[in-house]
Amino acid sequence: MIKLENVSVLYNKKILAVDNISLNIGKGEFVGIIGLSGSGKSSLLKTINFLVKPSNGNIYIDDTDIAPLRDRELRRIRREIGFIFQDYNLVERSSVLENVLVGRLGYKSSLKSFFGLFDDEDYKVAIDALKQVGLEEKIFVRADQLSGGQKQRVAIAKTLCQRPKIVLADEPVSSLDLSSAQTVMDYFKVINEKRKITIMINLHDVSLAKKYCSRIVALKSGKIFFDREAGDLDDQQLQKLYQ
């Protein structure tokens, strides 16, 4: 489903954030990305979604090379790739429902997107997404009145509104307490198992990665340090990673 061939990301022509990475992610996998801050985790995810363009290499989504795609074609591919940010990326003064409906904009014409025009199907999809993350009772509550864990669940619902094949999550639980983090991770696990959505998630907490992910890719200085099944990790590997 996701294939990277010799991908590098260079910032300001001198900072190498991702260094010649090749990686294959299959349909329905739940992959955790771990490593020190600055190891290239965020840059890797943003490159897969083409929020950051690679300096070198090729990226394939469902065997389609996304590098040469023009705006409309790239928009279609991005519609199938949900991206969840650490800071929730919500409009704080808007309602939960209004935030979730943003996930439907990729299906609208430019004019309808500009005016935020939604039909009955859009509302149905949004409400269903909120039910999947247990927030249907918060539908008319403003986002700034929610807890951090609830905000991240709204962000997940917004992504589900896209009906994506792939979800990329960049440190989505790093600012949450352990209980809230586990609740959010539980929902990621459910959508992975029940909806067969491929998930790649950056995590700073290795214990969460081992508990929820089936496969763990570790980055160090922009390179893949190891790529293992979660059950195969040992303390010696992790100690070398975080030295």
Score class of each variant (00 low, 15 high):
residue 117 L to T: 12
residue 116 G to H: 13
residue 203 L to T: 12
residue 168 L to V: 12
residue 125 V to N: 11
residue 123 Y to L: 15
residue 212 Y to T: 07
residue 119 D to R: 08
residue 142 R to V: 12
residue 145 Q to C: 12
residue 111 L to P: 05
residue 221 S to L: 09
residue 131 K to V: 09
residue 124 K to M: 13
residue 193 E to Y: 03
residue 148 G to K: 00
residue 112 K to F: 13
residue 188 F to G: 12
residue 198 T to E: 10
residue 127 I to E: 14
residue 216 I to E: 02
residue 224 I to K: 09
residue 197 I to D: 09
residue 185 M to A: 11
residue 177 D to N: 05
residue 171 E to Q: 13
residue 131 K to F: 06
residue 189 K to H: 11
residue 192 N to C: 03
residue 170 D to G: 02
residue 158 K to F: 00
residue 127 I to L: 14
residue 119 D to T: 04
residue 180 S to I: 01
residue 127 I to W: 02
residue 182 Q to L: 14
residue 200 M to I: 15
residue 186 D to Y: 11
residue 199 I to P: 09
residue 175 S to E: 00
residue 126 A to Y: 08
residue 139 I to R: 09
residue 206 V to A: 06
residue 223 K to V: 08
residue 184 V to P: 06
residue 195 R to D: 06
residue 216 I to C: 11
residue 122 D to V: 03
residue 172 P to Y: 07
residue 150 Q to S: 04
residue 192 N to A: 01
residue 154 V to E: 05
residue 117 L to F: 14
residue 167 V to C: 09
residue 201 I to L: 07
residue 156 I to K: 00
residue 133 V to N: 06
residue 114 F to Y: 15
residue 149 G to H: 01
residue 208 L to Q: 05
residue 161 C to I: 08
residue 139 I to M: 10
residue 149 G to W: 00
residue 209 A to S: 04
residue 150 Q to D: 06
residue 212 Y to K: 09
residue 121 E to P: 06
residue 135 L to C: 10
residue 154 V to T: 05
residue 150 Q to G: 01
residue 151 K to L: 01
residue 192 N to K: 11
residue 155 A to K: 06
residue 197 I to T: 09
residue 128 D to Y: 08
residue 186 D to N: 15
residue 222 G to S: 09
residue 175 S to G: 03
residue 201 I to C: 10
residue 218 A to T: 02
residue 200 M to K: 02
residue 144 D to F: 13
residue 113 S to L: 08
residue 154 V to S: 00
residue 154 V to Y: 04
residue 111 L to I: 15
residue 144 D to R: 08
residue 194 K to E: 15
residue 189 K to D: 11
residue 121 E to D: 14
residue 184 V to H: 07
residue 130 L to Y: 05
residue 125 V to G: 04
residue 163 R to S: 15
residue 176 L to S: 03
residue 159 T to R: 02
residue 129 A to Q: 03
residue 181 A to C: 06
residue 222 G to Y: 07
residue 198 T to S: 13
residue 211 K to G: 05
residue 181 A to R: 01
residue 138 K to A: 12
residue 136 E to K: 12
residue 120 D to M: 13
residue 160 L to V: 10
residue 118 F to C: 12
residue 136 E to D: 14
residue 146 L to R: 11
residue 212 Y to A: 14
residue 158 K to N: 07
residue 199 I to C: 07
residue 203 L to S: 13
residue 150 Q to A: 01
residue 187 Y to R: 04
residue 131 K to G: 11
